[in-house]
Simulated assay, not measured.
Amino acid sequence: MSKLYIVGIGPGDFEYLTYKAVETVKNADIVIGSKRAIDLFDEVNEKIIFNVKNLHGNLEESVDIAKEGKDVALLSTGDPGFSGLLKPILEISEEKGFPRENIEVIPGISSLQLASSRCKIPWDSANIMTFHGRENIEDILPIIDNGLETIALPSRKVKDMAQFLIDNGVDSERQVIVCERLSYPDERIFRGSLEEVSHSEFTYMCVMVILKE
Rank of each mutant, 00 (worst) to 15 (best):
D167N: 15
V105T: 04
M205R: 14
I48Y: 09
S198M: 01
D167C: 08
S125L: 02
I38P: 11
N58Y: 02
K67W: 04
C119A: 14
W123R: 02
P11T: 07
N27C: 05
S172A: 08
E201L: 07
V197I: 10
E94I: 08
S155E: 15
E213K: 00
L40P: 02
L86P: 04
S155R: 15
M129V: 15
R188H: 02
I121L: 00
N168W: 12
E61Q: 12
E138I: 12
L153W: 09
K87P: 11
H199F: 01
F190C: 01
P88W: 05
I177M: 06
F131C: 10
S198T: 03
K47W: 04
E104L: 08
I151A: 00
I121P: 00
N58G: 07
D139M: 07
A21C: 15
A126Y: 01
P154M: 08
K96Y: 11
I166G: 07
E180M: 00
V176Y: 05
G169L: 13
F98I: 03
M161N: 14
E104Y: 02
L141G: 04
C206I: 00
L153A: 12
D71Q: 12
A37Y: 00
D186T: 04
Y204R: 06
G57P: 07
I106V: 14
M208T: 08
F164M: 02
E60C: 02
S116P: 05
I89V: 15
E180N: 07
V63Q: 06
G192M: 01
N127P: 06
V170M: 08
S116A: 14
L59V: 11
D71F: 12
F202N: 00
L59M: 14
F50S: 07
A152S: 13
P122R: 09
F131K: 06
E94P: 03
K157L: 13
I30D: 10
I92C: 13
I177A: 02
V25H: 09
Y184W: 06
V22Y: 06
Q175I: 01
T203A: 09
E195A: 08
T150G: 00
I143W: 01
L148T: 03
Y16K: 09
K3C: 09
E187A: 05
P11E: 03
